[in-house]
């Protein structure tokens, strides 16, 4: 299928902060400032950038946890076979639609209710959306536990989160997410809290599930090495804007934007003989160039499907 699953255009999320109780001045933080991208059906997009660049805000706006303040997000509607803006959804339609978007969070220690056993945790979304009868639901929990590799399921269902290791808990999070058979899953650094050896098994599990269940991921991370492993395409964010977006291997081998180059050059390489080339940029200067070009920066296509924000090309290259 060549359709896009999601089309995001000029997405904005502004936060108002007041200057104090008696102040009439309202300041606006532009956490996400006019970003646009598409995710084709069944493919995964990595969103990389430093802390505070707006990655998580973007994820929360896309998964409808926080309302956006501007721009448009459209999803492919399986029934009408056309793109549908999320602004048009209301009531039952919205609730039904929410099943298609799920989220996996960073910290498996904090995102699972410590007082519920694993069965209840995974059952909850089915209960909320009133899917099937009780025995159907329990059967579904049993199956999904097998899918995420927590076998035999009957051993895990009565256990509580504190009885599981970090890797097992993240598997429970994934099970809870996938039991709704979503088409789109937002993953916010799902492996950054895990040990290296366990990290790969979780990443492999997610890749296999994406293939089997036709799920698309928006994968948020600050580690490009992880993004390379997980994603077909990567978008680089800086100060609320996407500065470069391309196919993963193209982005890594041919980065254009100075910020992308800086980001790639900061990743440690697991080879003591490898001499990493340093690439320094002046962040204050970059900051100024980007903020003076506020509004919708044009993205220029420099190669097939490789886009770079133009104001920066003019300013810094």
């Amino acid at each position: 299928m060549n359709n896009n699953l999601i089309e995001v255009s000029n997405l904005e999320k502004y936060f108002e902060i007041s200057g104090g109780i008696f102040s009439r001045n309202k300041q606006v933080v532009k956490a996400v400032d006019g970003i646009s991208f598409n995710i084709p059906y069944g493919s995964s997009l990595g969103l990389v950038g430093q802390s505070g660049c707006g990655k998580t805000t973007t994820a929360r706006a896309l998964s409808l946890l926080d309302p956006k303040t501007g721009g448009d997000v459209s999803f492919y509607n399986d029934e009408t076979k056309s793109m549908q803006s999320i602004d048009e959804l209301e009531g039952d339609e919205l609730k039904k639609f929410r099943r298609n978007i799920q989220m996996i969070f960073q910290d498996p220690y904090e995102s699972l209710n410590p007082r519920w056993n694993i069965k209840d945790i995974i059952l909850e979304p089915l209960n909320i959306h009133n899917i099937g009868n009780l025995s159907d639901r329990e059967e579904a929990v049993f199956e999904i536990l097998k899918t995420v590799g927590l076998t035999p399921p009957e051993n895990y269902m009565p256990r509580f989160p504190h009885e599981l290791s970090g890797g097992q808990r993240q598997r429970v999070s994934i099970a809870r997410t996938l039991i709704m058979k979503p088409k789109f899953v937002v993953c916010d650094e799902p492996t950054s809290m895990l040990d290296v050896s366990i990290r790969i098994s979780i990443m492999d599990l997610m890749l296999n599930l994406a293939k089997d269940l036709e799920v698309s991921y928006l994968y948020i991370t600050h580690d490009l090495a992880v993004a390379r492993y997980m994603c077909d395409r990567i978008a680089v964010m800086f100060n609320g804007k996407i500065v470069e977006i391309a196919e993963t291997e193209e982005l890594l081998s041919n980065p254009i934007h100075p910020y992308t180059k800086r980001l790639i050059s900061s990743i440690p390489i697991p080879d003591p003989s490898y001499n990493r080339t340093k690439y320094e940029i002046d962040f204050t200067e970059l900051d100024q160039i980007i903020s003076t070009n506020s509004g919708n920066a044009d993205m220029v296509e420099v190669k097939d499907n490789h886009y770079v924000a133009t104001h920066d090309v003019k300013g810094l290259l």
């Binding site: 790969i200 098994s201 990443m203 090495a225 990743i267």
Partner: peptide, 17 residues
């Protein structure tokens, strides 16, 4: 070593432990 991803070199299939 087999489970550490890298941004340089060929993309290899990582092995989990």
């Amino acid at each position: 070593l087999a489970s550490t991803p890298s941004v340089v070199g060929d993309k290899i299939k990582l092995k989990s432990l």
